[in-house]
Every structure is written in structure tokens, then in C-alpha cells.
Design a protein around this nucleic acid. Structure first.
Lengths: 342, 342
DNA sequence: GGCCTTCCCGTAAACGTTTACGAAAATATG
DNA sequence: CATATTTTCGTAAACGTTTACGGGAAGGCC
């Protein structure tokens, strides 16, 4: 592998000159710059990242911390690749690379994160599966590591975040369902720690109140991620005493499980139970058509990357850069899974 | 951020001693090792990766080269996260990190890869979306970069690979369909460059011949990845003159599109067209149940990582390490989408 | 030609590690 | 106790960059 030293020797100039030529500094004659660039291309020289990192203190990598069997704001596998793709499309413009890191979940995640930042593996991080109280926020804030959350947390250190507009989703869903005569509406929420649970729950309560509906805690059902969770949820709901007529969920895999569960019981989705929540285009295969909320994941990824770029001191022109805190809205795709109650 | 120098100063010993103590070398008194470890834990010292990389020439990162809208051996988003998860579970044992890199597709991918290896961003790579003639293989082999392919290629430089057993899948599928009376069987293949296309095609031809069926090139249909591809495929098939009665596919998203396309046309999947191919557990939502082939993606990821570990000189004991070249078998999940022809 | 600018370029330090080498300290051997 | 051996540690070089600094070359001006 050719180093800058080889290149310098080959050209008969000093490594300093080579470096300046390649990095577009002043202090180098146009003619020699040409020579250097040409030789670099010929010898296939690419600067070693370790050397560069050591010297200038940044790695050119952006880490996305993905928790094993991640189930935060966007459960299931379906999502992330699109988001990554969007992120990389922005990062490339800045010569940065996305580095997806599989973090162990919850208990071990702080320790893991500490190692990552200690090793200085990445210049900046994206956190997903954000928890209501998230020690990772303090950990990163304390050490001045630039980061952006994909999701929100009550642990607020002024960090930027991007999140989907779950408030808007739940508000609209309840509105729709109420207008169609539904009165007992189940809210499927993820596990305890995740902040998403509280976002959904709070909105749910206030919106119920707004429509004059009573809050019944039995209608808030913690649901495991994935299709299995959906199946269990279907059974749970249909076996309840005062049977609910509708369900709202946030995991895009849930509808698959819900449909399956209902079918197993000989029931018809959309007829015996109104189903409404977040999904992807894959849901279009469901029959009857699923009424659902969608988001452009590629764009979300781009936005996340942009927010992150703002946090990187070494390529920041604006000062101070804006702290992005945004809820990305869903768009509704109408189907027949939330028909009026007969 | 505390460096090894800080730690040494704090302890009143030299940095050499600290380094040896942390890296479990000889030449250090048990008592001082204890002191060093204790102080390191207290000060939260973690060695800087750039420094370490520069010195010992390896980064501790394993790169997974994922092509944008990847459509190689396993199309769709559904898969990779599980595979990554499996990989990381092995890599962690060796202190390695997985780094997923979003590569531009095909035309630009060589250039991209060259930059990656030149920068020395990763110690080893995994290539996906393997093409029949894959210049990336030569590029990496020439520079002695350890790598493993997730998929196969005709470009053979003795590199290890892991692939799914598409031969077995197609063989079994034709066997099943033939036994059920199907004679005109469509093979949905991915685009030209991908090696998978030829693997499927070759097996298809030989198996047709084995069952005394004629090969008809109209029955080999290039299909775009994703559900859209599936929809188009359904229409294409149903509008053919001598209408086929079955289809075999390799993209796990295709069945969703196929079902949707057929339904749009007022046809019944499994009845008007037998559908058989690779899918994931998500397919269990389809009705009638999809007969499909599955694979344990987590285990596949583990296997890939193991194959990669064998290629890393600095943590290899066996010599010479085995070159893993394996086809991972599918398991069949029976449904009702490939019923006997009436 | 002498002097001052301007323009280029080489030198060397620094980033944080690991490790070969040799020196010093501790222990064993006579 | 002197010497030989072993154990432990400090020193310094090296990995590949970037960049502050100073100096030489070239050119302009009087």
C-alpha cells in the first residue's frame, strides 16, 4: 500500500508538499500540484485514515447505534436500511461514512457506548430506541460527543432530535375512529422504558378526553414487537370482556400479526376489529386494505444526517448551527381496515 | 479524553508499562498491573483506536458492503439486519465491530471500494450483491484484503463465500410443482449482472430436462426487486399467450407483489397461479398460506463472520485456515400456494 | 546590484498507540 | 558477599498524516 512517503519519494518532493497539494492548501505551485495529483492517481494513493484521524482528531465516520432487536420508534427490520440509505446520500457529500453498529440492548448499552466513544470510533452518533430516561444522553453530552437522537427522551441536554409525529398520528387516528363510531379503542404500546410509549399514551389520553371518551387502562396494551406481538394482541383484544372495536399501533409489523391472529380466530380484520396505525408499503398486500400512516424513510434519513452535520465542528460554517428538533409528519393512506362501526 | 500518557502520569509509571499492563503482556509485575487496571477503570480510559490502528495496522472494523437498493442474493430490507445481528454476535467475541457501508450500486461501486480499502477503514470486508463477473473480487484479491462474499461469483480468486442454496431451492421447487402436475413454470430472475441469475437459470434448465420438460425462454422473466416487481410479474404472467401455471422466485418480497397483482386482476393466488419461492416469516400473513423456503438469517450472519475471522491474519491460530465455501440450505414451509393443478 | 516581497518548499513536531531494546532492580546462585 | 540470572520497567522508535515554522528561490523595485 503506497503511503504519502512513497509518493513523495517517487516525485522527489517532500511529504509536506504532497500533503498540501492533495489538500488544496495554498503554498504550492500549480505545476507541482498537477504533478502530485497525477502521480497520486497513477499510484492509486489514498490517505490512510488512521494516520489522518490521529493527526486531526476526527475519523470521518458517523455511527448509527442500532440496538439488537431494535424496537424504538420504528420497529422491525423494514425501516432502517432506507434510513441508512438516506443518511449516506447526505454524508457522502461531506466525505463521511455511515457506520452501523449493533449495540446490545438496554442493560449493556451504556457500557457499549462508552467503549465506542472512548475508542473514538466515530465523530458523531445517532441514537435509536430512545428511552424515556436515557443515560446514553448524559453519557454523550458529558463528553461533548456530537449526536442526534432518532426519537425523543425526557433526558434533555439540549441535543437535537428527529422523530416521527406520533402525536399527530394518534390524534388523527382517534379522530377518525371516533367519527366512525368507535368508542372502545385499544392503544398498543411498546415496552416500559421506551419514550415512545409515553408520547403515545399522553396523546391518547388527551384525545380521548377531547372526544369525551373515558380512559380505561385495560385498553392500553403493551405489545411485543414484530408479527408475534400482533398475533398475541389480536387474541388479547378479542378475548376481553367488554370487547374493544378498534386498535391503534405504532409497529409497522403489527398489522401483519393482527390480520393473522384475527384470521386464525375466524374473524375479519376491519370488520370485527378496526385496525389503524403505522405501516410500510408492504402493508398494501393486506386484504382488506390497511388504512395506515406512512413516512418517507429515505428523507428521514437525509434529515437525520443533516442534523448531524450541524453538530460536527470541523465542517461547520454557520455559528452557532441550529439545533434541529423536528417531528416528521405521517401521511395517511386510506384503506378499509377502519370502517364505521355497524 | 484521557490518553495513555495521562494514565501513566497519574500512576507515576511510564506509558510503556501501562500499555503492557493493559494488553496482558509479560514483563509487568502483577501488583502494578492491578494498579494500572484499577486506575484505567477509574479514569475511564479506553485506548484510542486511531493510535492503535496506526501502530499495529488494523482497525478492528469489519465492513459490510451493502449496495444501495441491494438486490443480490437476498433482496429487500427484510434480511440484512438479522444477518448483521448474527455477524456482530460473533465479531464481539474478537473485539471487532461491524461497520455497514452503503455503497453506490454497480457502476460506481469499484471506485467506492477502492477508496474504502485505500483508506484502510476496515480490516476485512463482506461483499453482497455479487455479480457474475465481479471486478471487486479482483480488486480486493490483488491488494490482499481479506474478504468473504455473501453470494457467489464466476470471478474466482479462491476467496471464501457463503451463499444460500438456490440450487436446492429451485430443484425442490420444480420437483414439487412437477409432481403436482405443473408443466409451464415461470422462473423469476434478477437482473443481468447478478450471479444469482445464472445459478437459478442453470438449475432450472437441468431440472426441467430431468423431468422431461422443454425449456422455453419466455418462461424466464427478469423481475425487478420488491413488491412492485412482483405485481408486474403477476400481470406479465397472466397476460401470456400460453399461460403458465406456476412461478418460482427468489426475492422474499415478490410474493407480496404477486398476491397483490393477482388479486387486482380478480384472480386467486395458489389457484390461478402456483407460487413458490423464498420468503420470510412475514409471509405467514398471506392467504392462502404461501409455500416457501426459509433460512435462519441470524445463523447465516454468524457463519459469515466466522468465515471472515479465518481470514484475519492477526487473530488466526490455525494455519492455514480453512477457506469456507458453503451453501446454506433452506427449509420448506408448506402452505397452499402450490396446490396440484386441477 | 542590493533590498524587499512574494511564492514555494522542506523540516520537524505532533496525534496515541505498541513494542523492541536495554537498563535497572530484584532475586537466585555460588 | 560477589556474581549470575531473572524479573520488571523506562526509553525511544515507528505507524501515516497534517501543519506551523522558517528558509531559500524567484521576482520586482529602486
Amino acid at each position: 500500500m503506497t503511503s504519502i512517503k512513497d509518493l513523495a519519494q517517487h516525485l522527489g518532493v517532500s511529504i509536506g508538499t504532497v500533503s498540501r497539494a492533495l489538500n488544496d492548501k495554498f503554498d504550492v505551485k500549480p505545476a507541482t500540484r498537477e504533478r502530485v495529483l497525477k502521480a497520486a492517481a497513477e499510484l492509486g494513493y489514498v490517505p490512510n485514515q488512521a494516520g489522518r484521524s490521529l493527526r486531526q482528531g476526527n475519523t470521518g465516520l458517523v455511527g448509527f447505534v442500532l440496538e439488537t432487536s431494535s424496537e424504538g420508534m420504528m420497529q422491525g427490520d423494514l425501516f432502517f436500511i432506507r434510513v441508512f440509505d438516506g443518511m449516506q446520500s447526505v454524508l457522502s457529500e461531506y466525505g463521511l461514512h455511515l457506520m452501523v453498529m449493533m449495540s446490545p440492548s438496554s442493560e449493556k448499552s451504556d457500557e457499549y457506548l462508552q467503549k465506542i466513544v472512548g475508542r473514538r470510533l466515530a465523530d458523531a452518533l445517532v441514537l435509536s430506541s430512545t428511552r424515556r430516561i436515557d443515560p446514553r444522553v448524559d453519557l454523550l453530552a458529558d463528553q461533548n460527543i456530537p449526536f442526534v437522537m432518532l426519537g425523543r427522551s425526557q433526558t434533555d441536554r439540549g441535543q437535537p432530535w428527529l422523530d416521527l409525529d406520533f402525536e399527530g398520528m394518534v390524534t388523527d387516528a382517534i379522530e377518525r375512529l371516533h367519527a366512525r363510531g368507535h368508542r372502545r379503542i385499544v392503544l398498543a404500546v411498546p415496552r416500559q422504558e421506551l419514550n415512545l410509549r409515553y408520547v403515545m399514551l399522553d396523546t391518547y389520553r388527551t384525545q380521548l378526553a377531547r372526544h369525551g371518551l373515558a380512559f380505561d387502562e385495560d385498553l392500553v396494551i403493551e405489545t411485543a414487537p414484530g408479527d408475534n406481538g400482533g398475533v398475541a394482541l389480536a387474541h388479547h383484544i378479542m378475548e376481553m370482556e367488554d370487547r374493544p372495536s378498534a386498535v391503534i399501533f405504532s409497529d409497522p409489523i403489527h398489522p401483519f400479526g393482527l390480520y393473522r391472529g384475527l384470521t386464525e380466530m375466524g374473524l375479519v380484520p376491519g370488520k370485527d376489529l378496526a385496525i389503524l396505525g403505522i405501516a410500510t408499503r408492504l402493508a398494501t398486500v393486506l386484504s382488506p386494505n390497511l388504512t395506515h400512516y406512512r413516512v418517507r424513510l429515505f428523507d428521514l434519513g437525509r434529515r437525520v444526517a443533516q442534523a448531524l452535520i450541524h453538530r460536527l465542528p470541523h465542517l461547520n460554517t454557520e455559528n452557532p448551527p441550529p439545533v434541529i428538533r423536528e417531528r416528521v409528519p405521517f401521511t395517511l393512506v386510506e384503506g378499509e381496515s377502519d370502517l364505521p362501526l355497524e
